[in-house]
Design a protein around this nucleic acid. Structure first.
Lengths: 355, 355
DNA sequence: TCTTTGATTGAGACCGGTCTCACAAATAAG
DNA sequence: CTTATTTGTGAGACCGGTCTCAATCAAAGA
């Protein structure tokens, strides 16, 4: 006597229609909220729907409308508070517009990212917000426009891609903050990032896959250069041993005889690790080591010294990206935007002149 | 000359079939990887698929199979590192099994949670991992089983619901850690949580909607009681003014003449706020104020004093919940499990005898 | 050589919605 | 009172897959 065997015992428009003694079309009209129906029929159908506990199958709806009301978000790692905040503001905006968010972590690994993007597109997301792990590997993003899938790039840009992008003024902020270190009198500086070391090409130039980090490094080096710092005294510390973690690179840096007197950390995780290792080594901060970190993580103001940070407007960036994406999904066709958001330095206690 | 007008220009099995000169059924068989096909045809179809850049529409697939290969995760707030870690481990397990995760934040608000659950079920998720905001409002969860949607409760239990649940030993850990404070000689204690104050009923008993917090409070009170602490010296501080935030409740507590000499913070956000306010007031820690926090947040070991914490195995809990959910989705029908994970106290420097 | 068997393939229904179109009844205009 | 409109309803195609079932064909057994 069962009616549906394999498929869930869910009730469909047809069931409601039967119960209300109307055609499937009519029931669909009132339940779907389109077309016209008479008051009487509408009430009858709604009553039946309530009685049968009808709940529309959004999948089927998406199937015919071609819009899934879902967006995909691919970030590096949701555990990182930077992305946590971003995802939060994105989901808030999305929900407010009736969208849901499918979340994927790339672990800053390009292959994982591509796979995630492909799966999400397969699931027919209406759009994608991506923090591309690499500005060089972009094949998976190139063809998305033809797939009816809009894309917004978050925090990292890929100029060749002609897509909506929100970034912060990484280069300018890094330069400004480096200059601040220089002005305080430091002349052995380091920029530390968890980005993995990639082979630099023939000319020996660094090719940092993460565009935001790359631009920060540019800003750092430019400022160092203008400040007359010798190349060997403006260190770039990358994650030389991904399996062992960034910790060993930081150890190496801190243990070298002429260690830097000031460090610029490219995110709060990095800053935390530096802070820990300095504590372990009894390196007095800020007197023996000045530190500035990107991202105003919540804990940076309770350490002693409290950490001077470059505050990235993460939530606003997230909001912008989601709003822009939804505009696109709703049909906006203006040329791709590149939205740059200004960062703000929050001066605390972790920067003083070198001993 | 366009072929598909409204719907995206995506290529379907039918397109591939036409191109490969086989029937739709046959093309579907090779592309869907089911049934049998001859080697020759298989190669031909695959070649056509490649040529046309065919990509399966997972929505359509879900439509007929009844499985969306998607799970919904409803947490309080993804910005909170506790949930960040949980969601990370959940998505990892999910992905490893071919599932995607739709994320929703409830803000610990029951109405938002119910709405989220309904939307997710409408999107035909195969299962749901929920951190229910309230153990009293459960109507939205009760009927899910009949909807072909499995559920696992994360970090909070609802005994009446008979669902798979993973929690930690909140009551025991809270009692143990309270006893530790007592043993150190404290006799004015407070338990602080961001949970909102609800009207207590006629008998004046507290009814904490968040089960984990409720059990921690029970543990705290039990230990206080056994330690002979007067009821008025075992303070429970709730979020009395949600609009203004927990900060004001903490201020009030800290500013009262007989403020507690030891505090148990129910999560790391709370602990951070307490730490900040103590710093602002020049309350010396740990000498004038001992502190223990739930959740081993990354920053708790770099503050001075470093904070003694109750380490919850968040990642393992996340993993368990995802694995259990997937087992259910795959058909497991054993009776509902209640999995309790042990927490571990990490002793650092924030607990000393009162002055 | 004729039937039996097994391997492939094609036709078409189905999932649960949306949407177009034709038709009938009711109302307005001539 | 007839004709033109409007309004509400039903029949059925469609979205892009899966899946059942019958048909075809070649190899194998009688």
């Amino acid at each position: 006597m069962e009616k549906k065997n394999l498929h869930s015992s869910s009730v469909t428009v047809a069931d409601v229609a039967r119960h209300a003694n109307v055609s499937k079309s009519t029931a669909a009209r009132v339940l779907g909220g389109y077309g016209v129906t008479s008051e009487k029929v509408r009430e009858r159908v709604q009553a039946s729907a309530k009685a049968l506990k009808y709940r529309p199958n959004e999948l089927a709806r998406s199937m015919t409308t071609g819009k899934s009301k879902t967006i995909g978000v691919v970030v590096g790692d949701i555990e990182n508070s930077f992305f946590g905040i971003a995802v939060r503001s994105i989901t808030d905006v999305a929900n407010a517009h009736g969208f849901n968010v499918i979340l994927a972590n790339s672990d800053e690994n390009f292959d994982v990212e591509r796979e995630a993007v492909n799966v999400l597109v397969g699931k027919q997301v209406d759009g994608l917000i991506v923090t591309p792990a690499s500005r060089y590997e972009i094949g998976h993003l190139e063809n998305l426009k033809s797939e009816n899938c809009k894309v917004v790039l978050f925090d990292r840009e890929i100029p060749s891609l002609d897509m909506d992008t929100v970034v912060s003024d990484d280069q300018e902020a890094a330069a400004a903050v480096t200059k601040q270190l220089l002005d305080a009198g430091h002349c052995r500086l380091a920029f530390v990032t968890a980005t993995e070391e990639k082979d630099s090409d023939a000319d020996g130039a660094l090719h940092i896959p993460t565009s935001s980090v790359g631009r920060r490094i540019e800003g750092f080096l430019t400022a160092c250069n203008e400040g007359g710092i010798a190349r060997e005294d403006s260190l770039i510390v990358l994650n030389s041993d991904p399996k062992a973690g960034l910790g060993v690179s930081i150890s190496k840096m801190l243990d070298q005889p002429n260690r830097p007197t000031a460090i610029l950390a490219s995110d709060s995780h990095v800053a935390l690790e530096i802070f820990k290792q300095a504590q372990e080594r009894n390196i007095e901060m800020p007197s023996q080591l000045s530190l500035i970190a990107f991202h105003n993580a919540d804990w940076t103001e309770v350490t002693r010294p409290a950490i001077t940070v470059v505050d990235q407007p993460v939530a606003q960036m997230g909001r912008w990206s989601a709003e822009q994406l939804i505009k696109r999904i709703e049909g906006c066709t203006e040329p791709a935007l590149r939205h740059v958001m200004k960062m703000k330095v929050i001066n605390r206690q972790s920067v003083v002149p070198p001993a």
